[in-house]
Amino acid sequence: MNFSVLQFPASNCDQDAVHAVRHFGHSARLVWHKDAALGDTDCVIVPGGFSYGDYLRCGAIARFSPVMQAVKQFADNGGLVLGICNGFQVLTEAGLLPGALIRNRDLQFHCENIFLKTATNDSPFTSQIPVGKILRVPIAHGEGCYFADEETLAKLKANNQILWQYCDATGNLTDTANPNGALQNIAGICNEKRNVAGLMPHPERACEPLLGSDDGKWIFESIFAALKNKTVAAAA
C-alpha cells in the first residue's frame, strides 16, 4: 500500500507517520504542501505539528495549500484520509470533517498518555480494533477540545461518526479522563461517508513496544485491512 504523508511548514509528526507505516511493511512518502498532485496513493495522512505556525487558527492556512485541494478531490473520490492532531484541525478547517477544535479548557498544553475507547468498529479506521480493547496512546496538544453545535453533534451520534472517546483505564467516559474538555469526550470522528477520519491522539507514536505502547497499531491495521479489501473488490 502507498501512503502519502503531507508536509506543511512546521509539520513535526510527518517523519513519525512515515516511520509507522514503513514499520508495518508498507510504503510511505512525504508530499510537500506546494505539490498540487498526490501521485499514486492509497491513503493520505495529514500529520501533527503546527502547520504555518498555527497562525490565525490551527489549520486555517494549511487548508488553502495546493496539496489540500488534491486531498479534497481524493476524499471526494472515496480515498482514505486520516488526520492526526494538527491534521485533524486541518481537516475540520477544510470542511472535510464537521466541528472545530478549540483551546483546551484548562488553557494548558497536554503532553501525556491517555486512554481511548473505540465507539464503533464500523469504519476503515477502527474495524480491526479488538472489541472492548482500551487503547493507550499519547496526546500532545493545546487546542484539542472538540466542539460542534447541537445539531452537528446529534448528526454525529445518529450516523455513528464518533470513533474514539477519552476514557479511564477501565473504559469509563469520565470527566477526569477528558484531557481537554471535548464535548462527549470526543477524541476522534469520521465523516458521513466514513472515508475521512481525524483524531487528536497520536497512534503513530504508539506502534512499537519500545515506545511504551503499541496500541496505535490497531488503527493502522484497520486501514491496511480496508485497503486490502478495496483492492480485492476492485480486482473481482
Binding site: N104, D106, L107, C145
Partner: peptide, 13 residues
C-alpha cells in the same frame, strides 16, 4: 469573537 455557545476558557480566566 467566540460564539456564545462555545467554551471560552481565556475569557473565563
Amino acid at each position: 469573537t467566540p460564539k456564545k455557545a462555545v467554551l471560552d476558557p481565556q475569557g473565563k480566566t
